[in-house]
Design a protein around this nucleic acid. Structure first.
Length: 211
DNA sequence: GACCAGGTCCTTG
DNA sequence: CAAGGACATGGT
């Protein structure tokens, strides 16, 4: 379909791998990653880590605990991530969905990726990025995460695709292993944070690298 | 003080 | 369907 876009994306993946090497990103057990995926919406990761520590200290950092907890206690622990009221509600919604649909997080391991994704997208407060983050980093599925940085970066490279089409484009270029999905998304974010400002690029090596 | 952060939802034109 | 506002705290 768009051959030049595929080549640009393949080059991008290689270039970033050379630039960063291996990144250990978003470590943690599945429940923690799922919770972090919601907390990091429009929020710096350092603030999310503080909230995750508070949740752990209060035994609130599992899906099971979120189901039972008083929402005020959740709000109190995640305040430093901003939007804490809507995020507490989103955590409740996610936890309820998992409890009601699968019974437990462990059961989700047996469910096909497409089915899990469709279910997650039904949850209020979970969009494509959060769903794919949960699938990719929490459940080790091959579901590539498209975020604002990725959109910004490929636009800068002259690639027209957006959203789901862009996701498919990346997935067609990536090796058939979750490891590369995690690495590539992490690479893009780390690179873009430094070089792809909201208003202008800062010494970006990508713009003229593949044209 | 201004601006941004690893989004999502709802309302408008 | 694109654009704009709301949600909220914390860092530069």
């Amino acid at each position: 379909m768009s051959g030049s876009s595929s080549i640009k994306i393949e080059n991008l993946i290689c270039l970033l791998t050379c630039w960063f090497g291996e990144i250990e990103w978003w470590p943690g057990y599945t429940d923690e990653v799922m919770i972090g995926a919601i907390l990091t919406q429009q929020t710096r990761w350092e603030n999310v880590e503080r909230a995750l520590d508070l949740l752990k200290n209060r035994d609130l950092c599992t899906i099971d605990a979120i189901v039972r907890a008083d929402i005020r206690d959740i709000e109190g622990a995640i305040r430093c991530t901003g939007f804490y009221r809507v995020k507490a509600q989103r955590l409740k919604s996610l936890a309820a969905h998992i409890a009601q649909t699968y019974g437990s997080v462990d059961t989700m391991v047996e469910v096909p990726t497409g089915q899990l994704r469709a279910g997650l997208l039904e949850v209020s407060g979970i969009g494509c990025e959060t769903a794919d983050s949960i699938l990719c980093y929490g459940l080790f599925r091959k579901s590539f995460v498209i975020d604002a940085y990725t959109e910004r970066m490929v636009q800068c490279m002259g690639i027209k695709s957006r959203g789901q089409e862009l996701k498919r484009l990346f997935e067609a270029c990536l090796p058939d292993d979750n490891y590369f999905y995690r690495q590539t998304h992490a690479h893009i974010v780390e690179y873009a944070k430094e070089f792809c400002g909201k208003k202008r690029c800062n010494e970006c090596i990508l713009v003229n690298s593949s044209g």
